[in-house]
């Protein structure tokens, strides 16, 4: 047991080392691509806390991304604050919003929760489009980061990497604390969880707030990186879809599932867009469909079960078809 742990730690450390050193030997385009992967890995991992572990499939997590971005933009542009302050404020602001919206919305279950969160995100987008302080549909500019071009690429890459490590570390700690047990208990059977003494409302709200916190941080870095923010892209349903697809594709309810999902989905869609200029999203849709039909438990299930090939796919279909 101990030996295995050491093995995992070594492998993990090795991968981390490669990721840390990776920008030093890459060109700007690839660093930027890596930054995108890391950003989606943060968001998919953050989604995993509420959707994967707690079993509340949020279809509006992009709202935290957008809020984080706009808090950063407003604090830096209108209040002249430093990015470090704006970054933290983005995380805590998104978490606070999660608590406020979570208290009523987390009383809903299943599809109803999904649609309510979707509605919250869409309503927020419409609100931001109409507010003066966010400069409505024309978008808001942020101050540029005062670094060389190469320095900027490094900065955003390592900010995303650091935030991702923070996300995974805190998720790991939560999972091994009592809170983690309560979240999984809620996912498995909420009534039973309540009857064994779990304050389900409190646990769910904390999970939602954590999910919002990390997504808000990602939004903050993204806004600073873009130096410009518009409501449409900042609150896009497609971003939520991407987080979920990545989490499911990699394996939801598993610590590293969303990370693996983000990595492979981004690589797949990037490769597709290299080969098929126009039709790559069409192929992306196909990938999602095939992945759901053949590997509903995610890539990480294939990896840990060491099951590959046709028989594994057919087994999944047999289990779920009518």
């Amino acid at each position: 047991m101990e030996k295995k742990k050491l093995q995992y730690a070594l492998i993990g450390g090795f991968i981390l080392l490669i990721v840390v050193l990776f920008p030093l030997v890459s060109n700007n385009f690839i660093i930027r691509f890596g930054t995108d992967i890391l950003m989606f890995a943060i968001m998919a991992s953050a989604w995993n806390i509420i959707g994967g572990y707690t079993g509340y499939a949020s279809f509006g997590n992009v709202v935290f991304f957008g809020i984080g971005g706009y808090i950063t933009a407003i604090l830096m542009e209108k209040a002249g604050m430093h990015f470090a302050v704006a970054y933290l404020a983005a995380g805590f602001g998104a978490a606070l919003f999660a608590v406020l919206i979570g208290l009523p919305v987390l009383r809903l279950h299943g599809h109803y929760f999904a649609i309510a969160t979707l509605g919250v995100a869409e309503a927020m987008k419409a609100l931001v489009q109409n507010l003066e302080i966010t400069e409505g549909n024309s978008g808001i500019y942020l101050p540029m980061l005062d670094l060389s071009i190469k320095g900027q690429y490094y900065f955003f890459f390592y900010m995303m990497l650091g935030t991702l490590i923070l996300t995974l570390l805190l998720t790991y700690l939560v999972l091994n604390a009592k809170l983690g047990y309560s979240l999984i208990a809620i996912r498995e059977d909420e009534d039973a969880a309540n009857s064994v003494g779990i304050n389900t409302t409190l646990s769910k709200t904390i999970a939602f707030a954590l999910s919002g916190f990390f997504t808000g941080l990602a939004g903050s870095i993204y806004a600073y990186q873009q130096a410009f923010l518009k409501p449409g892209p900042a609150f896009s349903v497609q971003t939520t879809v991407k987080m979920i697809v990545m989490a499911v594709f990699g394996g939801m309810g598993k610590l590293f599932g969303p990370l693996i999902g983000a990595f492979s989905i981004e690589i797949i869609s990037e490769t597709l867009s290299n080969y098929f200029l126009v039709a790559h999203t069409l192929f992306f849709g196909t990938v999602v469909i095939l992945a759901i039909v053949f590997t509903p438990k995610g890539l990480i299930d294939m990896i840990t079960q060491r099951k590959f090939g046709i028989s594994y796919f057919l087994e999944n279909i047999r289990e779920h078809r009518i």
Binding site: I244, A279, L282, V293, H320, R321
Partner: peptide, 23 residues
């Protein structure tokens, strides 16, 4: 083929179909 999996899975499958049709 996936109807007996969690309702959530069919939701994402529908997402995939949406992306496919639109594109």
């Amino acid at each position: 083929y996936v109807i007996r999996a969690s309702a959530f899975i069919t939701l994402i499958l529908a997402f995939g179909i949406e992306i496919f049709i639109n594109n």
